[in-house]
């Protein structure tokens, strides 16, 4: 029993750290396509966190809406921006003229 608790706790710590790491990478990654993929992975890991918190309804909603459809919307927006999988770096992101 004691061992199970410890195992559970370290699993939760791993999920929590993973969430923070994925969120940070999704924001900081210079490659926009990669950022979106990381964000979808973040959503899926978050669904796992909902399961751990005994919120299966939220987990289902997160997986389907949060990760799935938001991911689809993001990728559709990327292709419409003219950013593709091959060259994820967005074209010039230099400062705008006023």
């Amino acid at each position: 029993m004691e061992g199970m608790t410890w195992l559970g706790w370290s699993f939760d710590a791993f999920v929590g750290a993973g969430l923070l790491w994925l969120a940070w990478r999704a924001l900081a990654s210079p490659d926009l396509f990669k950022a979106v993929v990381l964000f979808v992975a973040f959503g899926l890991l978050l669904a796992l966190a909902w399961v751990r918190l005994e919120a299966p309804d939220v987990a289902l909603a997160e997986a389907a809406i949060g990760a799935g459809l938001t991911g689809a919307l993001l990728i559709a927006a990327l292709t419409r921006l003219g950013i593709s999988m091959a060259s994820g770096r967005h074209r010039n992101n230099n400062k705008e003229e006023l």
Binding site: L32, A35, F39, F42, W50, L53, A55, G66, L74
Partner: peptide, 27 residues
């Protein structure tokens, strides 16, 4: 971050953080 897509991702991550606080403390 300047790119709007990143700002939108950032808002979503903030939202997920709020949701996590709401659900976690319920347990």
């Amino acid at each position: 971050y300047d790119h709007l897509l990143r700002k939108i991702l950032a808002i979503n991550i903030m939202g997920s953080g709020v949701f996590l606080v709401l659900v976690a403390l319920a347990k």
